[in-house]
Amino acid sequence: MSKLMKSQKSSRAVNKLFTYLYLLILAVVIIYPLLITASSAFKKGNLVAFDLDLTADWTLNNFQRLFTETLYGQWYLNTIIIALVAMVVQVAIVTLAGYTYSRYRFIGRKKTLTFFLIVQMVPTTAALTAFYVMALLLGALDQIWFLTFLYIGGGIPMNTWLMKGYFDTVPIDLDESAKLDGAGHIRIFWQIVLPLVKPMIAVQALWAFMTPFGEYMLAKFLLRTPEHYTVAIGLQTFISNPMDQKVALFAAGAILIALPITILFFMLQKHFVSGLTAGGTKG
């Protein structure tokens, strides 16, 4: 008996050792690339590759160069404009549609809902040829409004599904009793149900806001002049030329994007997965 306990104890110790070893290695593997990038932003001179030399001289000069020597400020502004417009419009559209599908039974409801589900799987970004021809006809090539519009439209089916799933979690009894008290459509929506789905709206808003910061393919495809770039394609120009790598500038620009996005992410992270599973597993 005591022998068994002993062997159990030692196997537990081995398990503990390997557990912490695994966690530590994983942590190092995650932090190393981020640290090496971030630290390069504060290096002097023309860096051609990231390297981790914490003893080198530190400088904030790269951040200054970013705004004086490059179009980075313009790119950042473009991205924020796109992100804000896409966020406001998309959240408004998706909230209304999600509410409708959750609360009303109308002709064609099931059919259109299935349609949303299928359309949501279409890799719309792949319809490049169509976007190109549409942009030609509308004179919208190289225009950020067209890109904004595509971001808004592309996110609607998926997000309507998620929004509907979240609205479904609000008990319908609330609506019924409000209706008995004489509240109309708009009042029930605006004053009773909407306040209860604020967390999901926040998540949706953040998603819609973050997309233009990270989306590369459509932006690169549609935007042609550097003044119209978003940060994603702008930053890439710093390191896309193998003969002229501006690694320090890239790193500085990356920090200014990653920092706010990461903070926003951690603020709302709790809701991300619950929103996904709630919308995904409920009808």
Partner: peptide, 29 residues
């Protein structure tokens, strides 16, 4: 009875132009 359609209308409109129409054009191309 039409309130529901009214609420979903913007979603349909945006989807038609950003998804359905491009898909149609892609298929034709």
């Amino acid at each position: 009875n039409g309130f529901s359609y009214l609420l979903a209308l913007p979603a349909y409109a945006a989807m038609i132009f950003a998804i359905v129409f491009p898909v149609l054009v892609t298929v034709l191309t």
